[in-house]
Design a protein around this nucleic acid. Structure first.
Length: 304
DNA sequence: AACAAGTACAACCGCGATCGC
DNA sequence: AGCGATCGCGGTTGTACTTGT
């Protein structure tokens, strides 16, 4: 018997050889053609009438996860990654529910993304991926980085540094009535290295919660505060921008509003940054758990 | 070049929920 | 109500491909 076949008994008690494993092009085209003619559903019957030596379950999975015309292929965009992180923090492993908010992405794809990339990072950091610590780390470093990437994607020619974007925007410069990721993240360029909270008078120095995300119209993130209100930053020892303005909080703030399809008010308490454990200090629960190594590792998450 | 280890993702499995007779 | 068929979800496995040695 070939490696990818399996003898089973169907309901008619007749022996039938079922194929397993990777789908062939012929099988794919047969399935596509049959669904085009007869529609989805009744997968066992569909498999039978199409002459596919597959279970209905297998046909359904192949169609939903791979063949369906509106399936998006290719790497997840930073926007999509950000949404996955946010939604997972809210709903946990409810992959299908998460997938509903990512048009063209399947629950399987999202699940794979989580397992291969997100959990990998958690392992490397020696943190349980479902722990609060990891969630904190994600919100502290990963999400801001993704937002930064979104900006770069949105305007590849722009300079992503806060200093540049701030200085280049005059106080009279009009703000887009419908701010984009670019406009947000131009005011949200987190420091490369940890900066201690004590440097900042305002303890809410990073009130990152979650972006406004409209799934039907790509991601839109509001700029909660005009960047030009926060001029003049300094550089740290690594040449990275340090935000020295007393009202820094505003330039870091990313508002949580809603999703288009379903209002999604992300629990503000789930955001890691509180007055007691600010991002910049990273004193989670009063503990300096983020060593420099860990911070570097987290910072590199965007490569995932 | 050959092999091992790591990675990404398609596909399978088990199980509970729902449907229809 | 009972039962089998089907559906949908989340977890797991298998395997092709990539990267490192």
């Amino acid at each position: 018997m070939p490696a990818h076949t399996k003898k089973v008994r169907n309901s008619n008690e007749e022996d039938m050889e079922l194929r397993k494993g990777p789908w062939t092009l012929e099988e794919d085209s047969t399935l596509i053609h049959h669904i085009a003619c007869h529609g989805e559903g009744r997968w066992n019957l569909l498999a039978k009438f199409a002459g596919l030596k597959r279970t209905g379950k297998s046909c359904r999975l192949r169609w939903l996860n791979y063949l369906k015309p509106d399936i998006k292929r290719g790497n997840l965009t930073p926007q999509e990654q950000l949404m996955i992180l946010e939604l997972h923090s809210k709903w946990g492993n409810r992959w299908s529910k998460i997938a509903q908010h990512l048009p063209g992405r399947t629950d399987n794809e999202i699940k794979n993304y989580w397992r291969t990339r997100v959990q990998k990072q958690a392992r490397q950091l020696n943190i349980e991926s479902n722990s609060k610590r990891f969630l904190d780390a994600v919100k502290c470093f990963w999400m801001p980085r993704l937002i930064q990437k979104m900006e770069q994607t949105a305007s590849p020619t722009s300079n992503s540094s806060l200093t540049t974007s701030m200085n280049s925007r005059s106080s009279s410069a009009p703000l887009s009535p419908n701010p984009t990721a670019a406009s947000l993240s131009s005011s949200f360029s987190p420091p490369r290295k940890l900066i201690h909270t004590s440097s900042y008078p305002n303890e809410n120095s990073c009130s990152f919660t979650s972006p406004i995300i409209h799934t039907s119209d790509s991601m839109k993130i509001s700029e909660s505060t005009r960047a030009h209100e926060h001029p003049a930053d300094t550089l740290d020892a690594f040449g990275n921008t340090i935000y020295s303005h007393p009202n820094l909080a505003n330039s870091y703030s990313v508002e949580s509003r809603s999703y288009d399809m379903e209002t999604l008010m992300l629990d503000p308490t789930s955001a890691m940054i509180t007055s007691e454990n600010s991002l910049l200090g990273c004193h989670m629960e009063g503990v300096d758990w983020l060593s420099d190594d860990m911070a570097d590792s987290l910072w590199n998450m965007n490569e995932m």
